[in-house]
Design a protein around this nucleic acid. Sequence first.
DNA 1: GTTGAGCGT
Length: 78
Amino acid sequence: MKLLVRNLSRSTTEQDIRKLFSEHGKVTECTLVLDQETGHSKGFAFVEMPDQDQAKAAITSLNMTSLAKSKIRVKKAH
DNA sequence: GTTGAGCGT
């Protein structure tokens, strides 16, 4: 199950996402979308979780949780 | 140098 994480802080790395989602389940893939030129974060990332139950648990638990200065938003990807 | 709704090299 692919998850979309948006409204991330610019300084947030994929290790942060990985660690954050690992608290609620297995994370097989974590991809932070970076800018090709600057290499800075675009502010959103993708997370792959094998178990759908843990994925939904991670969504409901991590959605709208405060990260850095803003609240992150997690939902199922396309 | 920032922002902020999005569905990705």
